[in-house]
């Protein structure tokens, strides 16, 4: 059995969250790059507001570039990639070198994208590498409990983004049920009040406001 400390448990969880954040955001931004070709642009002020991040951008084009690549901005995708790799690096002996290599490659592809005049090609590699990471992670990490900690992180991030951005709301119930299923297999002890709200919502027992659900999902492991 692989032994994990509380700090490693925390890193496994955040590895899942950052990988999901990067994956989802890169997908959205690739679509935005395509729209920019025709002169349309994302309502980036609304995006920042919904995401809960400061709007420091001056145009849709500026947003696409800096939200993706500005490593000095802690809210950028570049910073999320750094955090994803940083959490992976301290878990090498748990997740294995071949699995960690996919995170390293996603990081490298992000750097290439930053310096490319056609960033969507290397951005596609970022997505490919994260998908490969997930497969390799599933294959390399023997203990189900550990796998599920990272998957719980991914699931929390996915639901958080769905709620914030209104993405794929029709899949929300299913995603909440997946979260509970994973959570059960981790042996983690989430905040009981937050868990109660998430469970009630997943089972459709009582109506819960979007904000309350978002706070509960984010508050599952808040200290």
């Amino acid at each position: 059995m692989d032994s994990v400390t509380l700090s490693k448990q925390n890193r496994l969880y955040w590895l899942g969250r950052y990988a999901e954040r990067v994956y989802a955001a890169v997908q959205v931004l690739m679509e935005e790059y395509d729209r920019l070709i025709d002169g349309e642009g994302l309502d980036y002020t609304a995006f920042c507001r919904d995401m809960g991040i400061p709007c420091v951008y001056i145009s849709a084009e500026d947003f696409c570039r800096r939200y993706l690549f500005d490593g000095t901005n802690p809210h950028s995708i570049r910073s999320a990639v750094e955090s994803m790799l940083g959490n992976g690096m301290v878990l090498r002996e748990t997740i294995s070198s071949p699995t960690l290599a996919y995170l390293q490659m996603a990081h490298g592809a992000m750097e290439l994208a930053e310096h490319s005049d056609a960033p969507c090609v290397p951005l596609q590699w970022v997505l490919d590498d994260i998908m490969a990471f997930r497969g390799s992670f599933d294959d390399s990490v023997e203990e189900e409990r550990i796998r599920n900690i990272t998957k719980t992180g991914s699931q929390v991030e996915r639901i958080s983004l769905m709620l914030r951005m209104g993405w794929h709301r029709e899949r929300l119930d299913r995603e909440l049920q997946k979260l509970l299923n994973r959570l059960y297999k981790t042996g983690l002890q989430p905040n009981p009040q937050a868990l109660e709200v998430v469970t009630a919502c997943a089972l459709g027992n009582e109506p819960v406001s979007r904000q309350q659900l978002l706070e509960s999902v984010e508050g599952l492991f808040a200290v």
Binding site: M1, S3, V4, T5, L6, S7, Q9, V90, R92, E93, G187
Partner: peptide, 22 residues
């Protein structure tokens, strides 16, 4: 081996332990 850093290990009764969640 298990990779550990400060805080992951402690000593009790002159014996070293790894602080595992299990």
């Amino acid at each position: 081996a298990v990779l550990a850093e400060a805080g992951d290990l402690y000593v009790r009764d002159s014996t070293v332990f790894y602080r595992s969640t299990q």
